[in-house]
Amino acid sequence: MKLYGLKTCDTCRKALKSIPDAELVDVRESGISEAVLTRALADFGAALVNTRSTTWRQLDARARELPQLQLLQSHPTLMKRPLIERDGDLFLGWTPQTRAALGVD
Rank of each mutant, 00 (worst) to 15 (best):
L92H: 06
W56T: 04
D87L: 15
I32W: 07
S74F: 11
A101C: 05
L24E: 02
D89A: 15
F91C: 02
K14M: 15
M79A: 09
G5S: 08
K80W: 01
I19D: 04
W94F: 10
L66F: 14
Q70V: 12
M79E: 01
A46R: 14
L37M: 08
T11K: 00
S18Y: 07
A22N: 05
A47T: 15
G103H: 00
H75V: 14
A15P: 00
A40W: 03
E29C: 09
M79I: 06
G103V: 02
G93Q: 06
S30G: 13
D89G: 10
G5Q: 02
A61F: 07
Q58R: 15
V25A: 00
K7N: 12
L78V: 06
L90K: 03
L66C: 08
L102Y: 05
R52S: 12
D60M: 13
L83E: 07
L24Q: 03
L24G: 03
L83I: 09
H75M: 06
G45S: 07
L66V: 11
R52F: 06
L24Y: 03
Q70C: 04
V25I: 11
Q73E: 13
L66H: 15
T51E: 05
Y4S: 00
S30I: 14
V27L: 04
P96H: 12
S18A: 10
K14Y: 12
S30L: 14
M79N: 03
D89S: 15
S53T: 08
L41R: 03
L16S: 05
S33K: 04
I32H: 05
T38Y: 14
R86Q: 13
L48P: 12
G5N: 01
I84W: 00
A63D: 09
Q68S: 15
L66E: 14
L59E: 05
F44S: 09
R86H: 07
A101L: 07
D21Q: 15
P67V: 05
Q58N: 13
P67D: 11
T11D: 01
L102C: 02
T95S: 12
N50Q: 04
A47C: 12
P67M: 06
V25S: 01
R13K: 13
A22K: 01
V104L: 06
L16W: 03
P96W: 06
T98R: 01
A42K: 14
A22D: 02
L3T: 10
Q70L: 13
P76C: 12
A101Q: 13
T95K: 10
L83M: 14
A47Y: 12
S30A: 14
A47D: 15
L71V: 11
